[in-house]
Design a protein around this nucleic acid. Structure first.
Lengths: 309, 309
DNA sequence: TCTATATATGAATGGAATTCATCTTTTCAG
DNA sequence: CTGAAAAGATGAATTCCATTCATATATAGA
């Protein structure tokens, strides 16, 4: 039951603070320099070393006029402490590095991956070369699966699954987009009411979005032409780019296509996407270095991206 | 000016307390056992390790039902910390031992050495075999010389020499002693006034002692027969034992001779020796292990010796 | 002798480490 | 299946130790 171990049972070690002060003071041959290195006052170093000397029952330094020098006892002690702190420092940095090394499996909707994340990912890889980001792209309605992925960028109305930690990322704005050709066809597309002559591209998983937007645009009764329903925004947007109709999509998913002129935004009316966007991970894995790196980076990218406002 | 040193400049190490907790917990595979070893609560260990994990950005333990086990990161970390603490412990114990090893030069009046210290010294040597006590026996009037000795057992009226630290040891009682033969010679020696027919053995350095005692005994005007003056109590007592007269000595110097019957105490009257007895050492050397060992042992011996009361 | 620099020291302070009290989870016995 | 025991987690309160502050002391150099 009891741990009968000679070298380590209940070894009462001197306080670390004092040992660190001693190590630094010995290295610098100066209390003042040691204090500076440790970002404490000279007084603290003096107190700590005095306490250590009292505890060990021997002087560790000879106080000379403008410096201190190790006594015999101090010279004996110093190498042990130096080595010990070197090991602690080395071990700590290895663990820290290891924690930041390896893969980070992210679960992302395919459209988010293609339209937003992948174009930015090189910056993350540059900043964190030790973290290999892998992506599992799911369809829009998939739930985050912590068995598969370390983190998930998900859109949901209630971020309350037990055991998961959610970081709110942003709220998306929804508005219709179409190809420039479609916007100019016929009499053009100037009023929401003119949508009646167009195909509204729909998603399985967001069937209410169009209804909500038409409502907000003041044409709630309007029913557009039937359209195939798509699995993902990606496909709906592809169809829109090819002029097959008008898609309703979150701003951040179409920002690049708008900028490139592949798509245009015919109306000013926007609605908030009812589901909010989160970064999810297992509760107990919050704090893991790779996850924190990714989270921090994500937040910065979002803050820097006008399409996220 | 600045210390350009790769391995050690201002390395921010995790708090020692947390590292110790981790090391102990890893060794025991149990927070509870670690807490017990460190004499803190389980709660403290839990807090510390949680903080460490947060700081390192990785879990160090997997919490299993009735125990914890190291994660990969923990397994990587543990050997470093174990080694580091082993070194600190080893270094500390070496320094402590070295501090208690070597000689301790004591400066003692020859009579104190012969009559009191030497008979007890074997007990000190048994308790502290690493400390070799050497003695420099001085005459009664010598002052303590910190250049020569580490400590001095001295008798003085004012313990106030700059740079010296004094520990009060005891106050001595003075009374006359003589050989049994002398005490019984003639009509015997029953009243202090009968001292007039005897030789009063005197010390150079304590000429007033007899006067003070006679005063206290109510025979202040009495002047005994002239006697040679001695260098030390030791010689005066030797003379007394041989029946050459009556000596006035501190109780602790004659306790053994009284017990052995070589001397007797003819009168009950005692006076306090005006000078008090101290253990002296350099102020800045107070706290040194060998000195503290000796001081502590001395105090215990004195407390245990009825002749010191 | 005066100034600059370094360490020592006692008292006061602040904050981190610890405890306390309580909860949650898991195992094991009956 | 229920209850008890054992281990760990957690938030709030507390205690104590490290640190700072203010000041003293000591030495070298001008």
């Amino acid at each position: 039951m009891a741990d009968i171990r000679l070298p380590t049972p209940g070894r009462p070690l001197p306080p670390l603070a004092a040992l660190r002060a001693f190590e630094a003071a010995a290295r610098h041959s100066s209390f003042r320099a040691a204090a500076e290195e440790l970002a404490i006052t000279q007084s603290a170093v003096s107190h700590q070393i005095a306490g250590l000397e009292k505890r060990l029952g021997t002087a560790l330094f000879r106080r000379k006029a403008r410096r201190v020098e190790l006594t015999e006892a101090g010279s004996l002690y110093y190498p042990f402490l130096r080595d010990a702190f070197d090991r602690i420092a080395l071990g700590s940095s290895l663990v820290r590095r290891q924690a930041q090394t390896g893969e980070l499996m992210t679960q992302v909707y395919v459209t988010v991956a293609v339209k937003w994340l992948i174009p930015r990912l090189h910056r993350f890889q540059t900043a964190h070369p030790d973290i290999l980001v892998r992506m599992s792209t799911s369809q829009l309605d998939w739930e985050f699966d912590p068995e598969i992925a370390d983190v998930g960028i998900i859109s949901t109305r209630k971020a309350d699954r037990a055991g998961l930690h959610y970081t709110h990322l942003f709220d998306a704005r929804l508005f219709p987009v179409c190809s420039p050709a479609v916007a100019q066809s016929g009499t053009g597309l100037r009023q929401p009411v003119e949508l009646v002559n167009h195909t509204l591209l729909q998603l399985y998983t967001a069937e209410d979005d169009w209804r909500a937007w038409l409502e907000a645009a003041g044409v709630g009764q309007l029913v557009g032409r039937a359209s195939p329903q798509f699995d993902s925004y990606l496909l709906a947007l592809e169809a829109a780019i090819e002029g097959q109709g008008i898609a309703l999509a979150p701003h951040f998913m179409v920002a690049s296509d708008l900028k490139a002129g592949r798509l245009v935004k015919p109306f000013a009316v926007e609605i908030r996407q009812p589901a909010r966007w989160y970064l999810a991970c297992r509760k107990e894995r919050r704090g893991e270095a790779r996850i924190e790196c990714f989270r921090t980076w994500l937040m910065l990218e979002i803050a820097a991206d006008p399409a996220m406002r």
